[in-house]
Amino acid sequence: MSALIDGAAWFASGCFGVAMLLALWRVMRGPAAEDRVLGLDTLYVNGLAMLLVFGIRTASGAYFEIALLMALFGFVGSVALAKFLLRGEVIEP
């Protein structure tokens, strides 16, 4: 692994870490419930990107599969939360 990519990967990991902290601040701060859901949505997208960066640094394929699962489950979670805010029910009869 070249030093250039390693340095860039560390920098990118740091950036995504900061982005996740900012999103976490929005989750805790609110003020409305939809702000918290939006913060959670940002949190998982940045976490997914961070895992991909780990995958580049370690040259391992396993992180990619976890990132794929995070994309799917994060979407389902965000939609369920947003639907609950909208209708007070996730799956309507």
């Binding site: 990519i5 340095g7 860039a8 950036c15 982005a19 900012l22 999103a23 913060g39 940002t42």
Partner: peptide, 24 residues
């Protein structure tokens, strides 16, 4: 390969930070 990968990683990280900064 190394230079484009490094540039893309730096750009992606910066964009994500700016996006989350917008959230705040």
């Amino acid at each position: 390969f190394a230079v484009p990968v490094a540039l893309l990683l730096v750009a992606g990280g910066l964009l994500a930070v700016v996006g989350s900064l917008g959230l705040v």
